[in-house]
């Protein structure tokens, strides 16, 4: 029990250390530049303590439960024995790794749904759009984007194709979608690409990428193991833009069908 408390205290301490520069900047500007007291200092302080405790519990819990298991599973799934691949074989077809793609997609979907940063942005979007954008719908669209992105990223590692081509094609698709998407959603869609990959997703996805790159014959984990995060931040943009596009069409057709 004591051991456990000291471990938790360490995580809490580390969180405080990470937050220190942010707090210093906010307080410094508040005192030196704005020179006005905050509106509800007590409430904000309590809220800040909630955030600190929340992140500490969250990280400790992930470290205890999900990370070891997730990394173990990434290792087991990419194990040549499980995949039924002869270790000496150099030419394995990409279909042999189908469980890896399914796992990549499911874990990408599930971890994104629990990502606190995404929660924050989705909540804010629902608030200022007056409910026109539903937080849960946005989060599901983003999660689908991440799921597809990570599965495609795993396919890229298996086939060993250039990361560059995927990213360029992805950018072009995003630009074309931007031209046609409703103006209101564009900023939010771009933002949702950046927020999907943080506390929960990054460690699990990195483990999967590195494990996969070491297991596939002819891949170098140093060169091929990275890039999954980039996929996971590109595809949510397409998913959200697409979602808005479809919602826009449906609204239009339901409007025009009414007299």
């Amino acid at each position: 029990m004591i051991d456990w408390i000291s471990q938790f205290a360490l995580v809490l301490l580390a969180t405080c250390r990470d937050v220190l520069p942010i707090a210093a900047i906010i307080i410094g500007f508040q005192v030196l530049v704005i020179r006005k007291p905050l509106a509800h200092p007590k409430k904000m302080l309590v809220g800040f303590v909630y955030v600190l405790l929340g992140i500490a519990f969250f990280l400790k819990g992930l470290e205890m439960a999900l990370f070891p298991l997730g990394k173990l599973m990434a290792a087991q799934l990419t194990n040549p024995e499980f995949l039924g691949i002869n270790p000496g074989e150099q030419d394995v077809s990409w279909q042999a790794y189908y469980w890896v793609y399914i796992f990549a997609a499911s874990i990408g979907f599930a971890t994104t749904l629990a990502e606190p940063s995404l929660l924050a942005v989705a909540w804010k979007a629902q608030q200022i759009s007056g409910g026109a954008i539903q937080a849960l719908g946005l989060r599901i669209a983003v999660s689908i984007g991440v799921a597809f992105g990570i599965a495609l990223g795993a396919f890229r590692i298996v086939t060993g194709t250039e990361l560059y081509y995927y990213i360029v094609v992805g950018y072009i698709i995003v630009l074309i979608q931007t031209l046609f998407a409703p103006k209101l959603i564009i900023g939010l869609a771009y933002d949702s690409g950046g927020v999907t990959t943080s506390t929960v997703t990054v460690p699990l996805v990195t483990a999967l990428g590195l494990g996969l790159a070491s297991a596939v014959p002819g891949r170098n984990p140093l060169l091929d193991g990275f890039g999954l995060i980039a996929f996971a931040s590109l595809f949510p943009i397409m998913a959200v833009l697409g979602y808005a596009q479809i919602a826009g069409w449906r609204n239009k057709s339901s409007l025009s069908s009414k007299p």
Binding site: V46, G47, K60, L66, L69
Partner: peptide, 28 residues
């Protein structure tokens, strides 16, 4: 045992974070 305890931690942490978000980070 660790899986269950860790999951409870994550749930508690997420809850506290959301509370603090509404009370502190967004208003600041």
């Amino acid at each position: 045992a660790n899986l269950v305890a860790g999951t409870l931690f994550v749930i508690l942490g997420l809850t506290l974070f959301v509370q603090g978000l509404e009370q502190s980070l967004f208003p600041i």
